[in-house]
Simulated assay, not measured.
Amino acid sequence: MANTLAKGTRAPGFTLHVTPDQTLSLNEFTGRRVVLAFYPADWSPVCGDQMSLYNHILPEFRKHGAELLGISVDGAWCHQAFARERKLHFALLSDFEPKGDVAKSYGAYRSAEGVAERALFVIDEKGMIAWSYCSPIAVNPGADGILDALEALPPMEKKDGTAQNSHNVA
């Protein structure tokens, strides 16, 4: 498995295609939390299950102030077809050319196969990696680790300087 970037490391910036003619940059999320989900390929069974699970619990990520971004080496057209088929409601970013550059910068690239690792990162609002995990490639890592990492972060400050409670209140 790869040697993924660890907690406390500044998240490397990137700009990737989200559609064939539109890009998305990590710096567009400055001041917000981001979950990066690197995965090997759109149409593989494990990847499809993993992305569908994240789509299902997307409201939980957002409740904690986090946006989800999926990243693989597939092209933007492939991502569009996959997202449409799976009815995904989050951005899939194409780390296609130069192939795997962003995955490599996060220590999440499998050179022998030419695909991204199944690696997860929670980035805090200051752009620091708050949690990372690299799953065996054939194993869906689920979402518990992501949710635990988001819950462990301190409450985000609102624009008025007061704390925003991102946890569930009974």
Score class of each variant (00 low, 15 high):
residue 159 K to T: 12
residue 157 E to Y: 13
residue 111 S to N: 13
residue 86 R to D: 02
residue 143 A to S: 15
residue 129 I to D: 06
residue 117 E to H: 09
residue 71 I to F: 07
residue 158 K to N: 14
residue 48 G to R: 13
residue 168 N to L: 12
residue 72 S to N: 09
residue 77 W to G: 09
residue 31 G to E: 01
residue 58 L to G: 02
residue 1 M to I: 08
residue 27 N to T: 11
residue 157 E to S: 12
residue 135 S to D: 11
residue 122 V to P: 02
residue 122 V to E: 00
residue 163 A to C: 03
residue 134 C to F: 00
residue 77 W to P: 06
residue 152 A to S: 15
residue 2 A to G: 12
residue 17 H to R: 13
residue 57 I to L: 05
residue 168 N to W: 11
residue 96 F to P: 01
residue 89 H to Y: 02
residue 36 L to A: 03
residue 75 G to V: 08
residue 93 L to C: 10
residue 137 I to D: 11
residue 121 F to M: 04
residue 61 F to E: 00
residue 100 G to P: 09
residue 154 P to C: 08
residue 86 R to Q: 14
residue 95 D to V: 03
residue 41 A to L: 14
residue 22 Q to D: 14
residue 10 R to M: 11
residue 110 R to E: 12
residue 65 G to C: 04
residue 39 Y to E: 07
residue 69 L to K: 01
residue 46 V to F: 04
residue 113 E to I: 07
residue 133 Y to F: 15
residue 140 N to M: 06
residue 32 R to L: 00
residue 37 A to L: 11
residue 2 A to C: 07
residue 161 G to V: 06
residue 51 M to S: 11
residue 32 R to K: 15
residue 102 V to Y: 02
residue 145 G to L: 12
residue 119 A to L: 09
residue 25 S to E: 10
residue 32 R to Y: 00
residue 118 R to N: 07
residue 112 A to L: 11
residue 44 S to G: 11
residue 79 H to Q: 11
residue 50 Q to F: 10
residue 61 F to P: 03
residue 78 C to R: 07
residue 49 D to A: 13
residue 33 R to E: 02
residue 29 F to Y: 14
residue 88 L to P: 00
residue 50 Q to A: 09
residue 140 N to H: 13
residue 20 P to Y: 06
residue 154 P to S: 11
residue 19 T to K: 06
residue 17 H to Y: 15
residue 84 R to G: 09
residue 22 Q to H: 14
residue 161 G to Q: 05
residue 94 S to Q: 05
residue 25 S to K: 10
residue 60 E to G: 01
residue 23 T to K: 13
residue 111 S to M: 08
residue 117 E to S: 13
residue 157 E to H: 12
residue 159 K to V: 10
residue 59 P to V: 03
residue 139 V to I: 14
residue 70 G to M: 04
residue 111 S to E: 15
residue 126 K to P: 01
residue 70 G to Q: 01
residue 32 R to A: 00
residue 34 V to T: 05
residue 82 F to E: 04
residue 106 Y to M: 07
residue 116 A to F: 02
residue 136 P to K: 09
residue 153 L to I: 06
residue 21 D to K: 12
residue 161 G to N: 06
residue 33 R to Q: 01
residue 2 A to W: 02
residue 116 A to L: 06
residue 24 L to H: 02
residue 62 R to G: 04
residue 155 P to C: 03
residue 108 A to K: 06
residue 117 E to T: 09
residue 18 V to K: 15
residue 166 S to V: 05
residue 30 T to L: 01
residue 158 K to D: 10
residue 82 F to N: 09
residue 134 C to H: 10
residue 115 V to N: 06
residue 58 L to D: 01
residue 110 R to L: 15
residue 111 S to R: 12
residue 139 V to Y: 05
residue 71 I to V: 15
residue 60 E to I: 05
residue 115 V to H: 07
residue 19 T to M: 04
residue 140 N to K: 09
residue 17 H to N: 14
residue 159 K to D: 13
residue 159 K to H: 08
residue 126 K to I: 00
residue 69 L to W: 03
residue 66 A to T: 02
residue 71 I to R: 03
residue 144 D to H: 09
